[in-house]
Simulated scan of single mutants.
Amino acid sequence: MRRLWGRLSSVNVQKAVWGLEELGLPYERIEAGGAFGRVRDPDYVALNPNSLVPVMEEDGFVLWESNAILRYLARGHDLGGLWPEHPRAAALVDQWLDWQATRFTPATRDAFWQTVRTPPENRDQAVIDRSVAASEDCAAILDAHLMGRPFLVGDRFTAADIVVGAAAHRWLHLDVPRTERPALRAWYERLRARPAADVALPGLS
């Protein structure tokens, strides 16, 4: 039995759900985090001492950290597909997973929290502006890389597109001014056309 703990409004849960859906793997998703609570309950902390989502349980095996979950699923169930077999291609997928976690999502975080989860009267425009500027730097990197490329690594959809695509989904739906970047937008629309993306990527909340 495979269980995934986490609310779908979490970008990290979205990545895990997208991977599971792409692979056609059966799973049960249990609401946790945010308004659903649970993450500080003793039984949940026993699964993830960080009190964060997502957590995946699979026949007694417990794994947290969304990119680690996606790596495990892709390597175990779609080696040569979502996870390339060639070491250099696999290294490039790892590169984009790390970039999403260390650059892109941190850049967008304050703009997301300020414009989506903070009441208008409590928002700090200077914080939003700094976050938007950092996010634009990341978007420019993505757009330049995607010029003439259908996907982030090679000519096929990989785990890199899932993690960066989920972060791009958040960025492109924030109510902030942004530079239109044609290559990034075309890539995002290719990802959104995938049935698994419809399940994994809801509106922002």
Rank of each mutant, 00 (worst) to 15 (best):
S66G: 06
A74L: 01
V55Y: 00
R103F: 00
T118P: 03
Q14D: 02
R29N: 11
V176L: 03
F61G: 04
F151V: 13
Y44N: 05
L79G: 04
V176C: 06
A193D: 13
R181Q: 07
A111Y: 03
A16I: 02
Q114V: 06
R178W: 12
N67Y: 01
T115F: 05
L172M: 11
A197C: 14
A91L: 15
S66P: 07
P87R: 01
R2A: 04
V127E: 03
A197S: 15
R71A: 12
T105Y: 02
N12I: 01
C138Q: 03
R109P: 01
S9F: 07
D155K: 07
E31H: 08
F151L: 09
A46H: 11
L23Q: 05
L47E: 13
D155A: 15
A101P: 00
W64A: 12
T179Y: 00
E65R: 04
W96T: 11
S9W: 01
A126E: 14
W64T: 07
P195L: 02
A159W: 00
V93H: 01
I30C: 05
D98N: 09
V11K: 00
R38V: 09
G24D: 08
D129T: 07
A144C: 06
W83P: 00
V93Y: 00
Q125V: 06
R123C: 10
V53T: 08
P54V: 08
L172C: 11
L92M: 15
D94N: 15
A140I: 10
W5C: 00
T158E: 09
R38D: 04
P42I: 05
R40F: 11
F36S: 08
H145V: 09
A107T: 04
F112S: 00
E21R: 09
L174H: 03
A139L: 15
L184H: 02
L82I: 05
D161Q: 02
R3G: 07
F36H: 14
R7K: 10
M1C: 09
L191F: 13
A160C: 14
P49A: 13
D129C: 05
V11S: 04
V163G: 03
L142Y: 09
R178F: 07
L191S: 07
A111V: 12
W18V: 09
E28W: 03
P49Q: 09
V127L: 13
R156S: 15
A74Y: 02
C138D: 06
R156L: 05
F61Y: 11
E65K: 03
G81N: 04
R29M: 11
V127S: 06
D161S: 08
D124N: 11
P150Q: 07
R190I: 10
H77M: 04
S9N: 12
W96L: 05
F104A: 06
D124C: 08
T179Q: 13
T108N: 06
L201I: 13
R181T: 09
H169W: 14
L142Q: 04
R75P: 10
R149C: 11
T102M: 10
K15C: 09
D198K: 14
